[in-house]
């Protein structure tokens, strides 16, 4: 693992035992992945391709059946921090306490954690909302707080699990642009899981395309669009070409006749 590698995964494999049939299921088949420091990489694929499972393995929430994950040692805080999908704030905590929670988990005293959380609340644009409760926030603002909590622990790598999936299209685009702004300011390595092609292309330096059953990597595409990127980059021919290329890769994986491939019997 070279000095500027933030994450290195080798032969990561995940097997489940189906609860009903007791048959072994292969969720992820031998995934290799390297992330350079400061790189923004999207993990793109249809549901069931194991992309979120892979993220949880990196985070340590799940244990892989086989393979190895190496993360760059945290210089200040944890190695990695997770930004969860939705409803990931504690409704009984204020925004400030939610943002400070990652630090509290690391053993930082409550007062100190709150003090250190405050600048992150400003960075994600939630100034003035520190004492509000999650139910008083819109979906987009809740995800800003979710992001601030992960940033507060000052981890080397941010793991983002479809953080904008439940937002409406407009808010999602605003949040994508915001994320790039924050990413530039915070200088983090990001591994971003999504099933949206345009989101992956717009945000990333590299898009890793995954296929399902079993979950595996089928392509690794460098996105050479200049930065900083504004939202209107999505209208350029280069952007659309990337989208088409990825779309075709995914479409090729689709079974042409559902019944012949037996997908109807699968759930």
């Amino acid at each position: 693992m070279s000095a500027d590698t933030a994450l290195s995964a080798r032969g990561v494999r995940m097997e489940y035992r189906d609860r009903n049939t007791n048959q072994p299921l292969l969720a992820i088949e031998d995934v290799d992945l390297d992330l350079a420091e400061g790189e923004f990489v999207a993990l793109l694929g249809p549901s069931g391709c194991g992309k979120s499972t892979f993220l949880k393995i990196v985070n340590g929430l799940l244990k892989a059946t086989a393979g190895e994950i190496r993360l760059r040692k945290g210089r200040k805080g944890r190695e990695d921090a997770m930004v969860f999908q939705d409803a990931a704030l504690f409704p009984w905590y204020s925004v400030l306490d939610n943002v400070a929670y990652g630090l509290v988990c690391a053993g930082v005293p409550r007062r100190e954690a709150r003090r250190r959380a405050l600048p992150l609340i400003e960075l994600v644009g939630l100034t003035g909302f520190a004492e509000k409760y999650p139910y008083q926030l819109s979906g987009g603002m809740q995800q800003r707080a979710n992001l601030a909590r992960a940033l507060a622990v000052d981890a080397e790598i941010l793991l983002m699990d479809e953080p904008f999936a439940s937002l409406d299209a407009q808010t999602r685009e605003d949040m994508q642009a915001e994320l790039l702004r924050i990413w530039t300011a915070a200088k983090k390595t990001v591994l971003f899981v999504t099933h949206q092609i345009d989101e992956a292309v717009y945000l990333s330096d590299r898009v890793i395309v995954m296929a399902a059953r079993p979950g595996r990597v089928i392509a690794d595409i460098a996105i050479e669009l200049p930065r900083p990127r504004e939202l209107d980059v999505k209208l350029t021919p280069e952007f659309v070409r990337y989208e088409q290329r990825i779309w075709e890769l995914i479409a090729r994986q689709r079974p042409t006749t559902a019944t012949a491939a037996g997908t109807q019997t699968r759930t």
Binding site: G60, A81, M82, F84, A87, A88, V104, C105, A106
Partner: peptide
């Protein structure tokens, strides 16, 4: 909620913290 416990675990919080805070 399972996912609330997952948050504590994800950030490396202790079982006792999960009990108190979740």
């Amino acid at each position: 909620a399972r996912r609330h416990i997952e948050i504590t675990r994800s950030f490396g919080g202790s079982q006792w913290l999960a009990f108190r805070s979740v």
